[in-house]
Design a protein around this nucleic acid. Structure first.
Lengths: 188, 188
DNA sequence: GTCTATAGAATGATAGAC
DNA sequence: GTCTATCATTCTATAGAC
């Protein structure tokens, strides 16, 4: 089942929980966020949250699925268009757009140790990630390309940095597109 | 008191605790790391850890002080040399070097919500950060420069990314120096 | 500096009523 | 779908002996 399909199966109440959980994860880290905190933020009891998700891990996984789903859409369009430079640029734009629109959360999704572990252990997200970077940077990467890939990934994650907190969305997107395009198209 | 001086006041036992704590923070996040875990990793009891630091917050602060101290050294040399391009390049090199040598921990130090909060609330680290980026990127930054600063910071933080886990230290340093110099010297 | 022992609160998770 | 009540476990932190 695709990430899009998995993400589409959550109820309204579950989606509210997922959204709330992500905000708390961003503020306190996954490990620093308790089910009590999530329940309080939702205005319900812990038991109500356990009715939606049978464990904290399930919430963490759901958060990942919901926020990776839009990337899957963008990726499939790019793959369908072939590996053309135009398709790559369009994919990069959409990834940046998605990141900027969820600024506070991106750094958490990319860096929180718990989410990183789940992201690495969970097959659908593994595949998404390798397909994404295959389109953006090519299939088999040498050391030089790997560093570029890591920097590219981190550059996108910089949308949540304090330095750009006051930069408006459009400016941030434009500047980031510029910088990251240079990273991708940089001559060997 | 400078960060260097503060960091220099910790005992051997405290430094062992700080080192161990940082490793656990990197694996589980600050919020996901208990004093019990730290004590177990050190092979002592919780009470022994509390003898060294009266609270978990004190350990977090100590971790920051110890790992920012080398940056303070590098920064002061660069400031003494004036804002010459040569001094900037040398500073950037030392920052990258320090980051590569502590790969697993850098992402935690830069991204963990608890550490980010402490880093923002703690005056000595605030000053260090603004001085550092003043030397690297100039004093008053417009939006464009702010995005570059955030990307530069994130690029340095990418040393811990899974993509470069197998890249050896020297290659990583060289490639990162290349990419980040382009970021700094990029024409407006 | 390290230990045992403990206090008191918070944790993840479950059972059963409405 | 939400509640109250509860479980065993773990948490931060402290007191006092060696």
């Amino acid at each position: 089942m695709s990430l899009r399909e998995r993400a589409g199966q959550y109820s309204e109440a579950q989606l509210r929980t997922i959204e709330t959980a992500l905000e708390l994860f961003a503020d306190h880290g996954v490990g620093g966020t308790s089910l009590q905190m999530i329940a309080d933020a939702l205005g319900v009891t812990k038991a109500a949250v356990y009715h939606q998700f049978n464990a904290k891990e399930a919430i963490v996984l759901a958060v990942l699925e919901v926020y990776l789903a839009p990337l899957e859409d963008a990726l499939e369009e790019a793959e369908a268009a072939g590996g053309t430079p135009k398709a790559r640029a369009a994919l990069l734009s959409r990834v940046i757009e998605a990141a900027v629109e969820r600024r506070q959360a991106v750094s958490t999704l990319q860096n929180d140790p718990v989410l990183v572990r789940v992201l690495g252990d969970y097959e659908p997200s593994r595949q998404l990630w390798s397909r994404l970077f295959a389109v953006l940077l090519g299939d088999d990467l040498d050391d030089r390309a790997r560093v570029r890939a890591a920097v590219l990934s981190a550059a996108i994650g910089s949308v949540g940095h304090a330095f750009v907190a006051d930069v408006d969305d459009e400016t941030l997107k434009t500047q980031l597109r510029d910088l990251t395009r240079r990273l991708i198209l940089l001559p060997g």
